[in-house]
Every structure is written in structure tokens, then in C-alpha cells.
Computed example of a mutant assay.
Amino acid sequence: MSSSSVSNVENLPPHVLRGVSKETVALSQEPPEGIQLHLNYDDLTDIQATINGPEGTPYAGGEFKVKLVLGKDFPAAPPKGFFLTKIFHPNIATSGEICVNALKKDWKPDLGLKHILLVIKCLLIEPNPESALNEEAGKLLLENYNEFHQRAALMTEIHAKPQPTSPPSMKLKAKVRKDKKKTLKRL
């Protein structure tokens, strides 16, 4: 995924950058349900989003960070998609690379970023074991759904569930306690 950290701003024509900018701003203002776009104003080609795990799936309750990498041939060529959050899924490699037809043979330049993000969200609902990048997940999905579900839910629990934060009052009390201890030591 090393190429995903390289900016392609200088490689894309201005009209493409304007289109990407318009689309990302529109997506951030009116995001599709369960998808939140994270804008990077310094690099328009750094497209990241959080996709909420759909209810009724082993990914429910999870928050999955994804990244789309626009190559120099975008939009003629599809972007590459990566999950930044670890996930157990047939169509997502352990490296995070996403395998979905919308990013491969079914790509059309007019599909747009919203379509891609929705297709990725749909993958969480309807995995495709026939085009598995993670063969273990694909095999489990076909042969033992319950075990697949358990593994995917466990990975979601470990890597994608938001960590509870302590209320501000608890943090403040802890700081006051620490300050009191420091003061007592000085006396």
C-alpha cells in the first residue's frame, strides 16, 4: 500500500481535480447513509471515509476506515480501494486491498466516488466468495457461515468498534487527583 501515501495532485488535470473537489464537498455535506467522508484539503486525491458496519451483518457496530487512491489516469482508470481498518472479509485482502467489480472490469468514468463508497458498503452486506482476495474468509463463508460470522464479528469487535471514552468529568477528576498528589509530595 506504499503507493497509497503518494499524492497524485500534480498528475491529474485541473478539470479532474475540480470534479473531485466538487464531488467530495457534496459528499461531505450530504453523505450517503452510514458513510462519512473525511476531507483532506491539502491533497484532494487522499479520499478517506468511515463506513458504518450494516446492521444484521458481522460488521454491525463497527466503524471501518477506507481509502480510495486516484491514479494518474483517473477517471479513465478506476481508483484503488483499501480498508485501513483490519477486517475479515472474502473480498478484502489482509493488506486491505478491495476486490470489487466496480473498481475493476465494471468501472466507468462517470460512476463517481459516491457510487464506489456505496458499492464498498454493499460488500459488507453481500460478500462475494467467488472473487475472494482472502481465500480463508471465502472458504469459510461457503462452507461454514456460522464460523465465518464469528470470525468476522470478532475482528470487528477488536479492530472496528469505537473505544469508549471516559466522560470529561472523570478525566478532570483524575487530573485534580494527580495535581493533589504532586502538591502533597512537595509539602
Rank of each mutant, 00 (worst) to 15 (best):
H149P: 02
F83Q: 07
L68W: 01
A26N: 05
P75L: 07
E126C: 13
P127V: 13
G81M: 12
A93Y: 15
N91V: 00
L37V: 14
E126T: 15
I35K: 00
K121G: 12
E30Y: 04
N52R: 03
L84D: 00
L70Y: 02
V25I: 14
T85I: 09
H159M: 00
S2L: 13
G34H: 10
Y41I: 08
P75R: 04
Y145H: 06
G138P: 02
K175G: 11
L39P: 04
H149Q: 11
E136H: 03
E130K: 12
K139S: 10
P168V: 14
F148Q: 06
N11Q: 11
I98A: 02
S28E: 05
A49V: 01
C122E: 11
T57A: 12
G112M: 06
K72I: 08
K86T: 13
E136P: 00
L184R: 12
L12S: 06
H149I: 06
F83W: 08
K173W: 15
K108Q: 09
F64G: 02
K182V: 08
K86A: 13
N134H: 05
M170Y: 10
F83H: 07
K139I: 09
V20Q: 08
H38R: 11
L154H: 07
S166N: 11
A137D: 00
E55N: 12
A26L: 01
P31S: 11
I51H: 01
H159G: 03
H38F: 13
S28M: 02
I125E: 15
P79V: 09
A26H: 00
R177S: 14
P167S: 15
G56Y: 00
G96Q: 04
H115K: 10
T165Q: 02
H38P: 09
F148T: 10
G96H: 06
K182R: 11
R177K: 12
G56W: 01
H149M: 06
K121A: 15
L154W: 11
P31G: 10
A152P: 03
A77D: 15
M1I: 14
N8P: 09
K67N: 09
K104P: 02
P58V: 12
Q150T: 06
P58I: 11
R177A: 14
Q36E: 10
P31H: 03
D42E: 04
V9T: 07
L133T: 07
D73R: 14
N8V: 08
E55Q: 14
K181C: 08
H149G: 04
V66M: 08
S7Q: 03
I120A: 00
S5V: 13
